[in-house]
């Protein structure tokens, strides 16, 4: 009777020379790392906000940052809210007339159609959520610097950024009249001048 052929996906310890020194140490390191990482991954099934006991330990956070293993799978988070989301720069002259510019740097480009996902999520998170006030302010300051640096704003003119947020209406209401969204326009003013900068210069 022929000997059973080992299945290719089974362990074949006889095919390996017995490990010594460095091999044993390497396997220990693998075991420790893999066990820690596996436990960390499994704990990630429960989202951070829902964990009964948060793990605020700095070491754990540093490990997540260094290994890129932070688990936050919030895909589709904002989808139910928006039918569309756009923004534009509005410049108002001293006599009240307005003109518009594309809001995307460099070069005050217009939004692309259809909007690439990354552009859409970045701008929506920048201006409609509370994700990053620091980045929002920095972005507005960049726009201000660029407008003034390129001479696109004359003395006495003012500018602001408008977000055009088209909220999807309730399905029942859409079914009644076919109108898909309600538009809300939000206004973001340029940040105040940094300390020490004279207003006349702006």
């Amino acid at each position: 009777m022929p000997a059973a052929v080992p299945q290719s996906n089974r362990d074949e310890p006889e095919s390996h020379p017995p490990a010594r020194g460095a091999g044993v140490l390497r396997d220990w390191i693998i075991l420790v790392f893999a066990s820690i990482h596996a436990l960390k991954l499994l704990a990630g099934v429960i989202p951070e906000a829902s964990r009964p006991v948060p793990v605020p330990h700095e070491l754990a956070q540093a490990y997540e940052a260094l290994t890129g293993s932070k688990q936050r799978w919030t895909m589709f988070e904002t989808i139910p809210s928006y039918h569309k989301w756009r923004s534009r720069l509005v410049i108002t002259t001293p006599d009240g007339r307005t003109r518009e510019l594309g809001p995307l740097l460099p070069g005050f480009q217009e939004w692309m159609e259809p909007a690439p996902v990354r552009l859409y999520v970045q701008n929506e998170r920048l201006f409609s959520g509370d994700h990053s006030p620091v980045m929002r302010e920095a972005c507005l300051r960049r726009l201000d610097d660029e407008l003034r640096g390129r001479g696109l704003i004359a003395p006495g003119e003012r500018w602001h950024l408008e977000t055009l947020e088209d909220f999807t209406r309730h399905l029942v209401h859409i079914g009644r009249d076919g109108r898909l969204y309600e538009r809300r326009v939000n206004r973001h003013e340029p940040p105040p001048a940094p300390a020490g900068e004279r207003m006349e210069a702006r």
């Binding site: 460099p106 690439p116 990354r118 620091v134 980045m135 920095a138």
Partner: peptide, 23 residues
């Protein structure tokens, strides 16, 4: 196509603000 707008200093968000927010 979005590399300068999203990632460069001359794009929408300056590097210093991104670094400040970074973990």
């Amino acid at each position: 196509p979005l590399r300068v707008t999203l990632l460069a200093e001359e794009g929408s968000v300056p590097q210093a603000a991104a670094a400040e927010q970074s973990e």
